Amino acid sequence: MKKIAIFASGSGSNFQAIMDSIKIGNLDASVELLVCDRQDAYVLERANREQTPIFCFNPKSYESKAEFESEIVLELNKRNVDYIILAGYMRLIGPTLLNEFSNRIINIHPSLLPSFPGKDAIGQAFRAGVKVTGVTIHFVDEGMDTGPIIAQEALNIDESDTEITLAEKVHEIEHRLYPETIQALFQKLSVIN
């Protein structure tokens, strides 16, 4: 069983999807820590309900990204975390975490990368008038949504879609695909090791 830490900045719907998958036995992992950079994020309530330990920090209280990432690394190493799972964490990962968890940081993004990286990918796709968008799960590197792709699932944008209905469809895929992909990756790794 892999020990994971989930990083989130917002509502935590993907955090919840991962927790739910673990509870029903579809994901063989244990969530050792939630890392959050916003005191008002709803994901903190979700983590409390799930009795998941929390490390919540204010980036402005630190002199640099390296300083708060070093503290995060200490928290992760205390708990022997194997993988970092980004679930709506709205910060670029810096060298401190990337070096410590090389090829062990996974992110989900609500578009078919390399299209529409960065913030508001659903809105970007909708406003661009594309006919297809989707969800990408990828390893994290030093760029903005540029790491090697692990899995993708496409979604047709219907004429009747609004930005809100499109977001709902994307989130539905995310909540199924992310836990499935993490489990498949962990199974593949256990065969290799």
Score class of each variant (00 low, 15 high):
E153D: 07
T162K: 03
K65W: 02
E100A: 13
Q124K: 13
I84K: 06
I164Q: 11
Q152F: 08
L166G: 01
L155N: 02
D161A: 11
L177R: 02
K131G: 01
F116E: 03
T133C: 07
I150C: 04
P110L: 08
A167P: 00
S70G: 15
Q51T: 15
L98S: 04
I106P: 01
T165V: 01
E71I: 11
H175R: 11
I93W: 03
L98T: 02
I108Q: 05
T52H: 01
S160R: 09
I122G: 06
L166V: 02
I84W: 02
F101Q: 03
F116L: 00
F55K: 11
S115R: 12
P117Y: 06
I106H: 01
I149H: 12
A128M: 04
G118D: 12
A87K: 05
T146Q: 13
S64Q: 10
E75W: 10
A47M: 06
R127G: 10
D120C: 00
V140P: 05
S64R: 11
L112F: 07
L112I: 08
E172N: 11
A125Q: 03
F139P: 10
T133N: 07
L177S: 02
N80G: 08
T52K: 13
A87H: 06
P110G: 08
N103Q: 11
S111N: 08
Y89I: 05
I157D: 11
D82Q: 13
Q152A: 07
D161H: 09
E172M: 03
S115G: 00
T52S: 12
E142T: 11
F55V: 06
N99L: 00
V170T: 06
F139N: 12
S70E: 14
T136H: 12
F116V: 04
A121K: 03
I137P: 08
N107S: 04
I122W: 07
E163V: 09
R79G: 05
T146S: 15
I93T: 01
V170Q: 13
G143S: 10
N80I: 03
I85G: 05
Y83D: 13
M90T: 04
K60F: 12
S102F: 09
